[in-house]
Nucleic acid binder design. Structure first.
Lengths: 109, 109
DNA sequence: TTCATATATATGATATTTCGCATGTGAAAG
DNA sequence: CTTTCACATGCGAAATATCATATATATGAA
């Protein structure tokens, strides 16, 4: 059971919010995708993804050398709705990272 | 223009989240309503309401001795949607305060 | 004017979050 | 089995948020 307070705390930080919204728009992304999209250090991205994983907002799956993150399959419907709504109506907030993402030739998803 | 990050930061604290959801469900509430619903000190409630007001999530209107808070009329549609969704699907999170609210005979809305 | 009620704010103490950097781990390539 | 690549985590420092207490303001009643 996901407490709404814990849920919104997860969305209340720049790196976590952008990661969640980008993942929601792209189905799944690996750490290096987000690292280049957000232009941040690897430990910083990884730490925030770990937070989201521990709160059950994201699930991770290792495939070869890469770890892919997606919205947790058992995320409550209302939470999915909130994330989708926020992602759809805040393209400006995501514009820069989206551009860096498509420019990232290393991984594909 | 409301940044999604600022918006979610507002929802990331117990008092502010409950205040917002209760106000969303009841159209408007005054400070003493929330004070008794949340069983908190007056300065604590007032400070968090001030935060929400400064971020333009809430508007306030003085009527006599009381100050009534409601969702800001110019709150972006996506933000209204997020609040409404969260309020509708988290009645358990709000159960205690709802009960204290109905028990509060002082103000009516 | 004075008092009581409802609400707001200032302030310093405390708690929580975030950060950078160093290091650890796990898979695959050579 | 060592090296490399992708990722995770431990830890102390720094930044941020929250709190309780005291005080200020605004309104209406006496």
């Amino acid at each position: 059971m996901l407490s709404p307070l814990i849920f919104f705390k997860c969305l209340a930080e720049d790196t976590r919010l952008k990661s969640l919204l980008l993942i929601s728009l792209h189905k799944e992304l690996c750490v290096c995708d987000l690292q280049s999209a957000l232009q941040l250090s690897q430990p910083k991205v990884s730490r925030h993804l770990a937070d989201l994983r521990k709160c059950n907002l994201l699930s991770d799956e290792r495939r070869g050398k890469w770890v892919y993150y997606r919205l947790h399959p058992e995320l409550p419907a209302w939470a999915q709705e909130v994330i989708a709504t926020a992602a759809r109506h805040n393209s400006e907030f995501l514009a820069d990272c989206q551009q860096q993402l498509t420019a990232c030739s290393s991984c594909e998803s």
